[in-house]
Amino acid sequence: MSTTTDYTVTGMTCEHCAASVREEISEIPGVTGVDVVVESGKVTVTSEQALDDAAVSAAVTEAGYELA
């Protein structure tokens, strides 16, 4: 059963920003999909099981942004 979790990421201004966030989060084991809306900062992550928020935060930080 898959899980969907919404996050808010601050600092994104363009599709390149979104691609960076999408790429980093996609590397977390178990992630099956990442949808990013730049305008609102909303990031929807679909995964095989619930994710550790610290792992998502670390991935977002690696991309150069922060969770709100």
Rank of each mutant, 00 (worst) to 15 (best):
V37M: 10
G30A: 14
Q49F: 08
V21C: 08
S47L: 06
I25H: 01
A18K: 02
E15T: 15
T13C: 13
V45R: 01
V45F: 01
S20P: 03
T8W: 08
A58N: 10
G30N: 14
C17W: 06
T61W: 00
T5G: 09
M12K: 03
T8Y: 12
Q49I: 11
A18V: 03
S20T: 04
A63F: 03
Y7L: 10
V60N: 02
E62Q: 14
T3Y: 12
G64T: 06
S20G: 13
R22V: 02
E39V: 13
A63C: 08
S2W: 03
D35S: 15
A50F: 04
E27L: 09
V34F: 03
G11Q: 10
C17V: 12
E23G: 07
T10M: 13
V36K: 01
Y7M: 11
S40M: 14
Y7C: 13
A18D: 06
G64M: 08
V31R: 02
D6E: 14
V31M: 05
V34A: 03
A68N: 14
M1R: 10
D53L: 04
T8P: 06
V60K: 02
V56D: 00
R22Q: 15
A54C: 03
G33F: 00
V45G: 02
C17Y: 12
G33Y: 01
S57H: 01
T3A: 12
G11S: 10
D53C: 05
T46V: 11
V9E: 07
D6Y: 05
E15A: 15
M12P: 05
Q49T: 14
T4K: 11
D35F: 01
